[in-house]
């Protein structure tokens, strides 16, 4: 039986991990739910965020926090032409075509990042305020992870408000529920698609910037963790904000707990759990059957 302190650590580290997973995956979930688009290039947007943060902090000397925000905005804006020129042509195409197009884009992004940044792993120098440990009473925890949790919670609050309380959020929900109906009552679904795509990509970039500290950053980031993001999206249920959040927390905490308590089991645990959930609820925890 793990001690109380150990359980706190598992929950804390698991939550921090879950927040990174959530921030990156949520965009993927919304685009998949809203547009029915299997976007395997989503990891590439996250990677772009990571590299931009590196460039901004290193070359331009911009502090870490603003750099995160700027990177998210740039990637979000830069994703719009992709959506308009490439993705929008394939909304009605089969999943297969979408997979092919986006794998192609992911490959190209890997090559481009190799050309610009080289193949070696890069790191981000954190401000000293975010390094070191934080005493939370029962336990000392890494300050950076506490910071990630705070960012995650703030984002969840903002996203929740946007989706549940604003006009645009209502439109997005309507379009996820029934695209044709939404269109017929005068919602400009095309523009909505572009907007959510940019939002999702921007969030991915933000998550990518945050993830560098944990996962490191090489050009293959674009595909390395993709499976994990897809798993979270499908376990949570397509297009469901709540589902993505719950799936991130469940998979994140179980992964960390499994590693802490029984490291011998390896990655077995997390995939078995995902498999079990999907066998029982094929549309995911909060997806519509």
């Amino acid at each position: 039986m793990p001690s109380f302190a150990a359980i706190i650590s598992i929950l804390f580290d698991g939550l921090a991990y879950a927040m990174v997973l959530f921030i990156i995956s949520v965009g993927l979930s919304i685009t998949m739910g809203l547009m029915g688009f299997v976007n395997l290039a989503h990891g590439a947007f996250a990677m772009a965020g990571g590299y931009l943060v590196v460039s901004l902090t290193r070359s331009l000397g911009i502090p870490f926090l603003p750099a995160l925000v700027i990177a998210a905005v740039i990637v979000g804006a830069a994703s719009i032409p992709f959506e308009r020129i490439l993705y929008s042509r394939l909304y009605k195409a089969t999943e297969l075509d979408q997979v092919l197009l986006t794998i192609g884009l992911a490959f190209m992004s890997i090559a481009v990042c190799t050309m610009i940044y080289g193949p070696a792993p890069l790191t981000i120098r954190l401000p000293s305020i975010l390094t070191g440990q934080l005493d939370i009473g029962v336990r000392t925890v890494p300050t950076y992870r506490a910071f990630v949790i705070v960012v995650g919670v703030v984002l969840i609050a903002v996203l929740w408000y946007t989706f549940e309380r604003t006009n645009i959020g209502a439109k997005i929900r309507a379009a996820v529920d029934n695209r044709r109906m939404a269109q017929s009552i005068g919602i400009n679904v095309d523009r909505l698609f572009t907007l959510t795509f940019a939002l999702g990509s921007g969030l991915a970039a933000l998550g990518g910037g945050l993830a560098v500290q944990t996962f490191g950053l090489t050009p293959s980031f674009a595909v390395l963790y993709l499976v994990f993001f897809l798993l979270i999206v499908s376990v949570g249920g397509l297009g469901s904000l709540k589902g993505t959040l719950v799936a991130s927390i469940v998979l994140g905490v179980f992964d960390v707990g499994g590693k802490y308590l029984t490291p011998e089991a390896g990655g077995f645990f997390i995939y078995a759990l995902a498999l079990a959930i999907l066998l029982v609820k094929p549309a995911g925890l909060y997806g519509r059957e």
């Binding site: 490439l86 042509r89 394939l90 195409a93 075509d97 092919l100 197009l101 794998i103 192609g104 884009l105 992911a106 490959f107 190209m108 992004s109 890997i110 090559a111 481009v112 190799t114 050309m115 193949p119």
Partner: peptide
Amino acid sequence: EYWQFGIGLVLVLTVLFAR
């Protein structure tokens, strides 16, 4: 170092022009 770019480009072109 860069073969991936070529393969990626071929894939994208295939989807766009040779569905």
